[in-house]
Amino acid sequence: MAWNEPGGNKQDPWGGGNRGGNQGPPDLDEALRKFQQKLSGIFGGKGGPSSGKRPSGGGGGGGLVVGAVVIAIVAYLFNAVYVVDEKERAVILRFGKYVETVDPGLHMYFPPFETKFQDVVTEYRSYPVSQEMLTEDENIVEVALSVQYNISNLKDYVLNVANPDKALKEATQSALRHVVGSSEMHSVLTEGREVLGDEVKERLQSYLNSYGTGLYISKVNVESAHPPKQVQAAFDDVIRAREDEERAKNEAEAYANQVVPEARGDAQRIIEEANGYREEVVSRADGEAERFTKLLAEYKKAPGVTRERLYLDTMQDVLGSTSKVLVDVKGGNNMMYLPLDKLMENQKKSSSSTGATGELTAQELDELTDRVTAELNRRASNARTGRSVR
């Protein structure tokens, strides 16, 4: 049954006994006095919880001092206990001397005898750098880059260098000026930018290792590299001219790659044709020589028959592929040859020049016959006159 319900005998849970009709909250001053009395009893002071008397003024002052001491101890312990996160590490110094590097977890140290330096070591940090400097060919360029780094050794970061971040920035400027100062401007502005970042990273890391800063450079990104704004237009023209030069070279190489194989193929074809012609001529010459040797043997056996046969074969070869007209003249003893084929060719040429079809009309044929007859009569008369003169 609750103490304030009927029949509960008015029992006060705060230890005040039966207070009759007073059902209000307990007195805070009285509760504080009881707490001080308990502390005084613990530390040997006068008056205990059973004395029932109000402590004097001197006793109350001693209790306040003890309370202050307890609060100070609690505050000291609260400050001495600390937590190291997974991405952090802590370095403990005792009287300024290195003691240990603390891993993640709950730990405690004892100030002012010990000093704690706690910082993030797994997270990468970045800062930008932008500088104007001279290149090897004495041109001014402006290079902007960003450096990504983290703390690899917290002990060195805390103890070796007074201001590691400032040392990092100054070392970056030094490494950048050294690399750019040993490179030409064209390389810095164009294809050498990636190489520039790698060289700056390597040189910067060597500087930081020699200083013992405990920093690790993960990446150096060259964000931009350009000449000063006052001469930017002129450098753009130079870059465009170089691009045009490269384009012309590529076109020339493409043309050469197309023409040279064709020329080599034509040259090889001509060589093969020449070799074939040589083989043909040599083989034909060998065959003619062999035929002449065999013909000589037959000629020695029957000279007259062979000579007659050679004459007939030759005339057949000569006259077999040409057009010819032979006219037997009465009263004569020989055949006359008229070049009618040549006359026909001349007639065809004249007809083609005038737009004719190339065929002889009846009138043209009669005229041609009359000319042939007149020529035959003239030759016959000349032949008779020549015989009478003799």
Rank of each mutant, 00 (worst) to 15 (best):
30 E>N: 03
284 R>E: 03
166 K>I: 14
59 G>Q: 13
42 I>Y: 13
109 Y>N: 08
39 L>C: 04
289 A>W: 05
323 S>L: 12
335 M>R: 07
380 A>S: 08
78 F>K: 05
251 E>Y: 08
236 D>H: 13
306 T>M: 06
218 S>M: 14
60 G>M: 13
79 N>Y: 10
162 A>Q: 14
212 G>K: 05
215 L>P: 00
155 K>C: 02
72 A>E: 05
370 D>N: 12
173 Q>C: 10
337 Y>W: 05
195 V>T: 08
289 A>G: 05
364 E>V: 00
294 K>L: 11
208 L>D: 00
348 K>F: 10
362 A>W: 10
44 G>L: 01
229 K>T: 11
120 V>N: 03
222 V>E: 05
228 P>H: 03
136 E>Q: 12
304 G>P: 01
375 E>W: 13
154 L>V: 03
331 G>T: 03
342 K>T: 11
147 V>M: 04
365 L>P: 00
369 T>Q: 15
284 R>L: 09
104 P>S: 05
12 D>P: 03
324 K>G: 02
343 L>H: 06
257 N>C: 04
88 E>Q: 14
360 L>W: 12
150 N>I: 04
50 S>A: 15
236 D>F: 15
361 T>V: 06
216 Y>A: 09
379 R>L: 07
276 G>K: 09
389 V>R: 09
301 K>T: 07
342 K>S: 10
173 Q>P: 06
96 G>K: 05
276 G>M: 08
261 P>V: 03
193 R>P: 00
54 R>I: 13
146 S>E: 11
128 P>H: 09
72 A>Y: 12
348 K>P: 01
308 E>V: 12
347 Q>E: 10
185 M>H: 03
68 A>M: 03
330 K>A: 12
371 R>F: 15
63 G>A: 13
203 R>N: 04
71 I>H: 04
77 L>S: 15
165 D>E: 15
13 P>D: 11
170 E>S: 12
160 N>A: 10
73 I>W: 12
367 E>C: 02
357 T>K: 04
